[in-house]
């Protein structure tokens, strides 16, 4: 399958801020995470992330992040307008 580059914004809730989730992600799935921007406070962690890999693997990686409690939005955040 072809390699894809997909761009996301991740929102980490406070309880996950100190956990090395992106390191775990790269161990667990055949994807290359590339952080492009990040902001961390006591209340939230926001990361803009590029993921490189096969489409199926990216889908699985996102599902895993969500199952761990990370909110994953496409780089546009909201494609669905009112």
């Amino acid at each position: 399958m072809a390699i894809q580059h997909t761009r996301f914004w991740l929102n980490f809730p406070p309880q996950l801020i100190t956990r090395p989730l992106l390191w775990e992600l790269s161990k667990e799935f055949a994807v290359v995470p590339n952080i492009r921007q990040a902001s961390v406070t006591d209340e939230v962690g926001i990361v803009s992330l590029s993921l490189e890999g096969e489409a199926d693997e990216i889908t699985k990686a996102i599902a895993w992040l969500e199952s761990e409690g990370v909110k994953v939005d496409p780089v546009e955040m909201n494609t669905i307008a009112s």
């Binding site: 969500e66 496409p74 546009e76």
Partner: peptide, 23 residues
């Protein structure tokens, strides 16, 4: 779910050469 629909729309917008007005 909303988040899945949201991400699919982003993928469609980037893939088919459409003029996606809000993307």
């Amino acid at each position: 779910a909303y988040d899945q629909v949201n991400r699919l729309c982003s993928e469609i917008a980037g893939k088919y050469g459409w003029g996606f007005v809000n993307v």
